[in-house]
Structure formats: C-alpha cells, structure tokens
Computed example of a mutant assay.
Amino acid sequence: MHKPALPVEETDTYQDQIRIVLVETSHSGNIGAVARAMKNMGLGNLWLVNPASFPDEASYARSAGASDVLDRAQVVSSLDEALADCVLVMGTSARGRKVPWPVTAPPEAAARAAQYAHQGRVAMVFGRESNGLSNDELQRCHYHIHVPSNPEYSSLNLAMAVQVICYELRMHYLRSLEEGESRPHLGSMVRPGDPGWDVPPASVGDVEGFFGHLESVLEAVEFHRRSNPRQLMPRLRRLFQRAHMDQMEINILRGVLTSVEKAVEARDGVGPDKATAADAADEGQDKDHV
C-alpha cells in the first residue's frame, strides 16, 4: 500500500512524549500531510480522534515518505481516550472565547511542552478543517495556542498549523541540546571562518596583495590612474572587504587578474590606441562619480 519510510528521529525520547492529536479530520490526505510535517521536525506520535477515513491510499500518498508515522498512529473514538494519560493539553484556537482562557504563542507553548514532557505525555490538539475545536473541546485544554497570523487572512490549513507548532517544538529541542555548546544545529554559516565553511578566510596580507594586484591591472587597462585616483580604489576596497573573501576566492581573483595582464600584454604587442582607451576610462569615472 505504501513505500517504507526511514524511522522517526529520537523515537521514545523527548519528541515521542509530544503527542499530536487531530480531532475528526475530514480529509485523509490532510492526515498524511500532517505526518509529513511531523516527521520533518522529528516527531512521530500521532493520535487520530474519529477520522472520517483512515488508513487509506490518500493519506499515505500525501505523507511523502512519512508512512512510519501513519503506521504508528493511534486511532481512537473520543478525545477523552487521546488525552487520558497526558499531563498537559494545549489546543490551537483561532478565535476568542466568551470565557477568557490562558493563551500562549507557539514559542512559549513549545517551551511549556518541553517542561512538562519530562513528567509525562503532552498533547497538542488540532481541530477540524472546517471549524476547529468546539468550545467543549477547548475547555479540555490547559492552554490555547494562538498563531499570530495576518488578521486579514488568518486561517491556516491543518498541516500548516501543525507545521508551525512542530517547528517551534523542534527549535526548542535543538536549543536545549546546544546549551553551553558550539551550536552545530542552529549556528549560522555565512562567511569564511564559520563552522562548516570549506576554506579558511583570507589573511590581511592576502587581501592587501590582491588590492595591489587589482590596482596594477586597472592601470594596465587604463581604467585607473594613480595621478588622478578619485575614489575608485576605496570603493573597490569597501566592496571586496564587505565580501569577507576566503583563500580560494582570493586565488581565483588573482588568477583572473593574471589572465587580464596577459591579455593586455598581447594587446600592447599589437599597438592599440592607448589614448582613446584612457579617455574612455576617464569619462566613465566622471559619469559614475567614482
């Protein structure tokens, strides 16, 4: 009926303490999409309260490789059964209630879920596609979770809502793993020297050598004159230093400049009109205010 799936990460640990509960889901494909959202974030404990149809081909097709989450899913006939052994219940709610109820945003909900997960099962409850959870069902929850979406278009489909909550659970879990460590999961890699970058950053000496080479080549092609420098080299220096180049990038650029030098030498051997080229370079600098 479905292809095998890779196992859910960290089964029977913190993630498995978090129970995703879907109440009376109308479309089985949405159950599959929820399973996929859960597995993306390392979760695998899915409970289904009186689904219209499950299991079926549509749910497995939409799961896109998360069939193991569906294989393990618990199907029960009432919300009571899904919540009976839980120590904390939080339900998603998109609208206000006559009786104010404790409301939390997804990040805070994830932190609270992690706290209680050490004591027992935690249920995150999602309602029907058409009208969510009933008032009676929401009153079974200790907290309501509100996703602060665009008030002019606030409705999320079921899998989207589950993805938002599971993402926050995942982020909280990763942060807990990396407290006091080097943050291999969450640390950014944006420039040479960051963990994971493949080449060391260029040294100041390497960069200065490149700038000297660049200025020499720009003079050779008569784009830049030391006697009338304007602001060309400071602006180019600002540009390249903003890039935080690595050693390989410096080597590539130096190789490009060397090729340009060879081309200039070949050109000079033919004897082009140097004055015309210089005038064009000056005109370009005046036009661009460099």
Score class of each variant (00 low, 15 high):
118 H>L: 12
161 A>V: 01
70 L>Q: 02
218 L>T: 01
52 A>L: 06
246 D>K: 09
151 P>N: 10
2 H>M: 07
274 K>M: 10
19 R>D: 03
254 R>T: 05
251 N>K: 14
75 V>T: 03
231 Q>C: 05
283 E>D: 02
67 S>P: 06
54 F>C: 06
84 A>N: 00
41 M>Q: 04
2 H>K: 10
146 H>Y: 11
220 A>Y: 00
187 G>M: 04
99 V>G: 08
185 H>Y: 12
6 L>D: 12
281 A>T: 08
94 A>E: 02
290 V>N: 03
251 N>A: 14
194 D>P: 08
37 A>S: 14
65 G>A: 12
201 P>W: 03
46 L>H: 07
73 A>T: 01
261 E>A: 09
256 V>S: 08
244 H>R: 15
126 F>I: 07
18 I>N: 12
209 G>P: 03
121 R>P: 06
73 A>C: 01
284 G>K: 09
219 E>M: 05
17 Q>M: 13
130 S>E: 13
254 R>V: 04
80 D>N: 12
273 D>P: 11
38 M>S: 14
12 D>E: 15
87 V>F: 15
201 P>I: 09
274 K>H: 10
12 D>V: 04
271 G>C: 06
95 R>S: 01
267 R>T: 06
187 G>C: 08
48 L>M: 00
93 S>T: 02
36 R>I: 02
121 R>H: 13
69 V>I: 14
257 L>F: 08
172 H>E: 10
237 R>I: 07
259 S>K: 14
160 M>L: 04
212 G>D: 03
45 N>F: 11
179 E>R: 15
